[in-house]
Simulated assay, not measured.
Amino acid sequence: MGNMATIRRDIGAGHHFIFDDTLVTQPNTDMFNPEFWHAQSKVTGQAKGRGTTIFIEHESQQWVLRHFKRGGLVGKILSDQYVFLGVERSRPFEEFRLLELMQAQGLRVPVPVAARIHRRGLIYRGDLITQNIPNSRDLHHVLCHQSLQKEEWHKVGHALAAMHNCQVYHHDANVRNIMIDDDKQIWLIDFDRCYKREGEHWKQSNLDRLLRSLRKEKGKNTVFHWEEIHWHWCMEGYKATIAN
């Protein structure tokens, strides 16, 4: 981790790219267009969140392409439009830079491949490509089928503490943004609107968000292998790892 060679490229017509040139030699607008990948039969799946995320197989790489879309009431009006405050302050660029930083710190987060924004006047739209986490499922999917052992909950706590030790605030630390791979390693995903933050006071609210998410899914799903004792195990792992 941490061997990225990041390049930013600004081309005409309001297109701005940032990319890891060890993974992408020449970024272009096509690679951020789902139809381009569908036409080549390189789309291996998709997931629906606020927008549609597609999974791509390209030159032996497994990629995840996400188009930035707004949620809530604002999303019904503006959909995928954001106010332009500068290229580096755009959501795709900020998430790319944050993932790059966490990669350098050795955290298990997606590898950023490329991001782009397309600006028209005061408005921009944007996309991000990351490497897919191989052989992984999100925590919600796993808990609908099986329970985690005590040491696995400890690992979830370790992962959250490692993120907080880097002073990274996760805007949406919920059960679907935690991944578990075949080696029982924990990964954190979806760092849109996340950022480096000073101090300690906000860290508990990140943990509270995840606990609310677990309780909500427990109430919603007929089968959901989670109990309050599991949260205690998670916090044991967190406290063992968090910097004093």
Rank of each mutant, 00 (worst) to 15 (best):
L122D: 06
R108P: 01
Q204T: 12
D183H: 09
H232A: 08
L214P: 12
K196F: 10
T130D: 06
N135I: 09
I180N: 09
V24M: 08
N132W: 11
H118N: 03
Q149L: 15
D172E: 00
L101W: 05
A114E: 12
Q62T: 14
T52Q: 03
G14V: 01
F55I: 06
G12F: 14
G106Y: 00
F17L: 05
A104Y: 10
P110T: 06
K42H: 04
N132T: 06
I242G: 10
R97C: 05
D80I: 02
A159G: 02
V64C: 01
V111L: 11
V223W: 02
P34E: 02
L207G: 06
W231H: 10
R9K: 11
S136N: 03
L85C: 11
P110Q: 02
D208H: 14
G2S: 11
N28W: 07
V168W: 03
Q103F: 13
G126N: 03
P34M: 02
Q81R: 06
F68N: 00
L160I: 00
V168S: 00
I7L: 08
M1I: 07
L210T: 02
R137Q: 12
H15S: 09
R70F: 03
E152M: 02
L73R: 15
T22F: 02
S60L: 13
L128C: 09
L122G: 03
V87M: 08
D30M: 02
Y238W: 05
E217K: 11
R9I: 03
L143M: 04
E236H: 11
F68D: 05
Q149Y: 15
K218W: 08
I180R: 09
G71R: 08
K76L: 10
K150T: 12
A161Q: 04
T53C: 07
A13Q: 15
T44A: 02
M179E: 13
R209K: 15
H154T: 07
W153F: 14
P134D: 04
R176V: 13
L122E: 14
R215N: 13
E227K: 11
M235H: 15
T241A: 05
V168T: 11
L65K: 04
V111F: 15
V168A: 05
A115D: 06
I242P: 01
E95A: 02
G75V: 01
K42A: 09
A159F: 03
L188P: 07
